[in-house]
Amino acid sequence: MNEAKLKTFVEQMVTDMAAAMSGVMTNIGHKLGFYKAMAGAGPLTPAQLAQKTNTHERYVLEWLNNQAAGGYVTYDPSSGTYELPDEQAMVLANLDSPVFMAPGVDTISSVWLDEDKVIDAFRTGKGIGWHEHHHRLFCGTEAFFRTGYRFHLTTEWIPALEGVEAKLKAGAKVADVGCGHGASTIVMAQAYPNSTFFGFDYHDESIETARQRAKEAGVADRVKFEVAAAKNFPGSGYDLVCFMDCLHDMGDPVGAAKHTRQVLAQDGTVLLVEPFAGRNIEDNLNPVGRLFYAASTAVCTPCSLSQEVGLGLGAQAGERRLSEVMAEAGFTRFRRATQTPFNLVLEARP
């Protein structure tokens, strides 16, 4: 037994347990408006924050101490005040920030709530349909990915595709498959008013939410959301078909890609956005890979295994495996258009 290694791992375990518990605190802070109230407000006492948020001071004190212990806020012992630094505010409080992440913590709470289902899946080998998860997963996923879509989809990802942005500006027909609450569909519709967008998802509750989101965004006249599966969504002649962080969740991604090729315009393009992954397992043994492997274990792989074929690509399928899927579906051109620390942005063409 190496005592030094044991001590180091015990410290890591304590750190991980503290992070897991503190994730709940982050969710509470976001939902009660603590971060928003602290952003740009300078040093605050617990009483001042409680007054600003109409909450109880005693609870606020404990919450602030947890946040200070984790480095989310700073504490000044001489004045007994707490402050949210500008950098942390960008991540926790600023809805218009390209790194706003606070609402995504709800995806973690949904995994805890569905823990028994996941344990049963391990024992039986059965899957868990997306619709079978706690509703927090749907809103948390929307919130987590929406930030990336808002700041990258129409400014970097689509421009990185061959000739696609010009089509969208002129007026194109676009399908967003596995659209969920429609975050990516709406972002595109806002950026390209001459184009028409169709969002498809098998989950009827998500489609209802997407329709409401489109009305709120003022793009309902150019966006149509419909309940449909990836292997038989309606329409043809699409200039662009998007799979935004969803192809790996599908039971039969090859079948979905084959159908897409059939309904794609002759010179159409597929935009495939997937979680970032390296070529080999060892390339993914880092914090981002750790996050995505956990999500894949509890959500993505069970989702695929709940469907026909059940290929189970997983969230860390990576570019090489995804290229094999698209090649099997009949696509002859496939490349990495661009990337972020969280996403691979891939282009496929017939």
Results as ranks from 00 to 15, higher is better:
163 G>V: 04
164 V>C: 05
63 W>N: 11
90 M>V: 09
225 F>S: 01
171 G>Q: 05
236 S>A: 15
227 V>D: 06
52 K>L: 08
173 K>M: 14
69 A>D: 09
291 L>Q: 05
151 F>P: 14
11 E>F: 12
109 S>F: 15
30 H>F: 14
240 L>V: 03
2 N>K: 08
24 V>I: 15
324 E>R: 06
137 L>W: 06
193 P>F: 00
6 L>W: 13
261 R>G: 13
185 T>A: 07
196 T>W: 02
268 G>Q: 06
164 V>Q: 07
203 H>Y: 15
225 F>D: 00
111 V>I: 13
266 Q>R: 10
305 L>E: 07
343 N>Q: 11
338 T>V: 06
11 E>C: 13
313 L>P: 14
303 C>L: 09
34 F>C: 05
198 F>W: 01
277 A>Y: 06
165 E>Y: 09
67 Q>Y: 15
157 W>I: 12
336 R>V: 01
125 G>Q: 01
116 D>N: 15
174 V>L: 10
33 G>L: 08
235 G>F: 00
247 L>V: 08
100 F>T: 07
288 V>T: 05
210 A>G: 10
142 E>G: 12
184 S>Q: 10
156 E>W: 09
44 L>C: 12
303 C>H: 14
84 L>R: 03
259 H>I: 00
178 G>C: 01
212 Q>N: 04
343 N>M: 09
146 R>C: 09
259 H>K: 02
59 Y>K: 09
158 I>K: 03
227 V>F: 05
229 A>M: 04
34 F>I: 02
152 H>C: 14
218 G>R: 01
253 P>M: 11
243 F>N: 02
290 R>V: 12
338 T>C: 07
333 R>L: 13
213 R>Q: 07
21 M>Y: 15
245 D>W: 14
303 C>F: 11
149 Y>P: 01
247 L>N: 04
108 I>L: 09
257 A>Y: 05
194 N>T: 11
83 E>G: 07
288 V>S: 14
24 V>T: 13
259 H>F: 10
136 R>C: 15
233 F>E: 04
186 I>M: 02
199 G>S: 00
315 A>P: 00
183 A>R: 02
273 V>D: 07
116 D>K: 13
283 D>T: 01
286 N>R: 03
54 N>I: 01
177 V>A: 00
290 R>Y: 12
51 Q>R: 08
172 A>L: 02
170 A>Q: 11
226 E>H: 05
190 Q>D: 04
13 M>E: 15
74 T>S: 03
239 D>C: 00
330 G>H: 11
70 G>Q: 14
230 A>L: 00
120 D>S: 14
3 E>H: 11
251 G>Y: 03
23 G>W: 03
319 E>F: 10
173 K>Q: 10
318 G>R: 14
187 V>W: 04
18 A>L: 14
191 A>D: 05
19 A>G: 14
211 R>G: 05
207 I>R: 06
187 V>C: 01
172 A>P: 09
249 D>C: 12
16 D>I: 12
336 R>S: 13
344 L>M: 13
143 A>T: 02
96 D>H: 11
106 D>Q: 08
222 R>S: 02
178 G>V: 04
341 P>G: 04
141 T>H: 10
21 M>L: 08
181 H>D: 11
275 P>R: 06
290 R>N: 13
216 E>S: 08
38 M>V: 00
